[in-house]
Design a protein around this nucleic acid. Structure first.
Lengths: 256, 256
DNA sequence: ACTTTAGTGTGAGACAACGCACAGACTTAA
DNA sequence: TTAAGTCTGTGCGTTGTCTCACACTAAAGT
């Protein structure tokens, strides 16, 4: 709300060297992302890559019958529009603003130009892509194996990590759409958390009171993704585009 | 079983231009992939990229309690080891051979060398990565919303598409591990399919008798992934590394 | 002040998947 | 031929989530 967001508030943009920044930043455009706005719709061509500064955007899959599930969450650690450099022009998912804020965006042409120089930006985006794949995969696992309670904890933690304060603005109805479950299911899970003193909420405003407890109540999925993401995006400052670090132990092919 | 697999049996390798093929193919090594072998183990560094010719490999997530779920399937349409060019050296998932066969593999160093030339191989692999992301995402959705019966159909179809014949060699126990459900659940679903005359099976050998029916019984997830993959991997023969096709309609930012 | 709307709580019945326990059928090895 | 092992079928009680229906409360609008 206070100071105007800077490009450096996005971790990926911040990690670029100054010459790349100098080349790209003039083309960055600051755009507000109002709550529940759609950045991309399913199967529609994308015109920009978005780098959130203080907003949170969910990647969401819509089913034929209208039901939906969020497959990942993106904040200032990442970007939206990986499809533009992966080679597709669109995806089956849509991007829904889950927490209002700002993002810098870069026209598709600029991204592609920068890519054809094959530099740092490519490396960063590829790494982020891997982190994203991890998050999506873990969502798949979580959907199969864990109870709503745990998934709610995971979701709250994922969202919290991308904000600078300890409260979230989202109704139970909204969360239910994200988790792909019933609204009543979220109500029950949220009630339980509130009774435990882990969160408090009222009419769309959720406050996290006991984050450590929230983490223990969450399933392993949160920490798996967190660790993996930290590992991947702990940007090694100087590296060749594709590094050649070939001093690793041997992995043998075996049958268990 | 019959003729020796050729590199061209893998769609990605086949799609490379002859000069790239000439550069890479000498380094390809043909390796047999026995049933249930582990190509990569979770969190272990990878030394090769694998291009299946007639084998099928599943990407599988293992949970702390030992339960597992397959998040995607890779056959001759793809490759294993995307992490090597995405920038990580390993992933939380492991790669399990689901149908025995062969694959060509390329040492990590060669892949990275070829990458630093920023050519066709990069583009192909990025495109495939997007197809893979689609598959993983749809798995997440499927796990949330669809019944075991439908998921079994999806799984059989995904596997069938990657084989040249109409039978699969996998026990219900194995399938249950892949879908992340109980063995008994698979038994019931399989029984239903057999009674409908869609498949027949006995002791690990499944024959698909009525594929169209199998497709209608499957959830939408199969066709969504299929369409998307066909779209992405319908290799446009001549393209710049990152194409610049900027004549597309406008997508506006809006709140629903 | 009153109504309307959005957000939340609750309860009853249905159903799918689960854990467990065990039985039958087929295959392989001794 | 017998025994051991693998694969598949079945039944039962439990749990989690779903559908449906409705009540309550706080905020917003007139």
């Amino acid at each position: 709300m206070s100071a105007k967001p800077q490009p450096q508030h996005n971790h990926l943009l911040a990690a670029l060297s100054s010459d790349v920044q100098g080349r790209l930043f003039p083309y960055l455009e600051l755009v507000p992302l109002p709550l529940h706005a759609l950045l991309y719709e399913s199967r529609r061509p994308m015109r920009h890559v978005y780098f959130p500064t203080d907003s949170i955007v969910s990647l969401q899959y819509l089913m034929e019958n209208g039901a939906s599930t969020a497959i990942s969450v993106v904040g200032n650690e990442g970007l939206l529009g990986i499809t533009l450099f992966l080679g597709g022009e669109s995806t089956p998912s849509r991007s829904l603003v889950q927490s209002a804020g700002y993002a810098y965006r870069l026209p598709r042409v600029r991204v592609k130009e920068e890519f054809n120089r094959h530099g740092q930006l490519l490396m960063l985006m590829l790494r982020y892509t891997q982190a994203l794949i991890t998050q999506i995969s873990q969502t798949a696992v979580c959907n199969r194996h864990h109870a709503i309670d745990q998934q709610l904890c995971r979701w709250l933690l994922l969202s919290m990590d991308r904000l600078s304060h300890n409260h979230l603005t989202m109704t139970q109805e909204f969360i239910s759409n994200m988790l792909g479950v019933r609204r009543e299911g979220v109500t029950q899970a949220a009630l339980k958390l509130q009774q435990l003193g882990v969160i408090s909420y009222s009419r769309g405003l959720i406050k996290v009171l006991d984050r450590p407890q929230l983490e223990t109540l969450s399933c392993e999925c949160y920490s798996v993704v967190k660790k993996e993401t930290d590992l991947l995006l702990n940007y090694l400052p100087q590296r060749s585009v594709i590094a050649n670090t070939d001093s690793i132990p041997t992995a043998t092919l075996r049958t268990p």
